[in-house]
């Protein structure tokens, strides 16, 4: 095959058989506004630590909905609150991160 300088990533098809929604459901109970995310990415664009660990509340939220490991992102958050300030949906992102940090064992 001709080398175009990029590769195809592994398919990330959503596999409902394998996804564990329990953590997301717990989170929604604690922070109801978590449901309002529309994946616009404002949080990631303003995030103080996105340049180091690729942190973004958007990625955290869809990550836990797909059962991915988001711990590395969570442990880099400094809770500065910029994402809360810019969220067009008014999601309490700081509280969301803080609560998620309690939900892992």
């Amino acid at each position: 095959m001709i080398d175009f300088g990029f590769t195809l990533s592994k398919s990330s098809t959503v596999d409902l058989n394998k996804i564990d929604h329990s953590r997301y459901d717990q989170l929604v109970k604690l922070v109801p506004t978590a449901r309002m995310c529309m994946n616009c990415g404002s949080c990631g664009a303003t995030c103080t630590v996105s340049e180091y660990k690729g942190m973004s509340v958007r990625k955290v939220l869809y990550g836990i909905q797909r059962g991915e490991d988001v711990k590395a992102m969570l442990s880099s958050c400094m809770l500065c609150g910029k994402c809360t300030m810019v969220c067009p949906r008014g999601i309490n992102t700081r509280n969301l991160i803080l609560n998620l940090c309690k939900l892992y064992d």
Partner: peptide, 12 residues
């Protein structure tokens, strides 16, 4: 007094 199970690792 709250317990957090995800540790904080200084990123910068």
């Amino acid at each position: 007094r709250r317990d957090y199970t995800v540790p904080f690792l200084y990123p910068a």
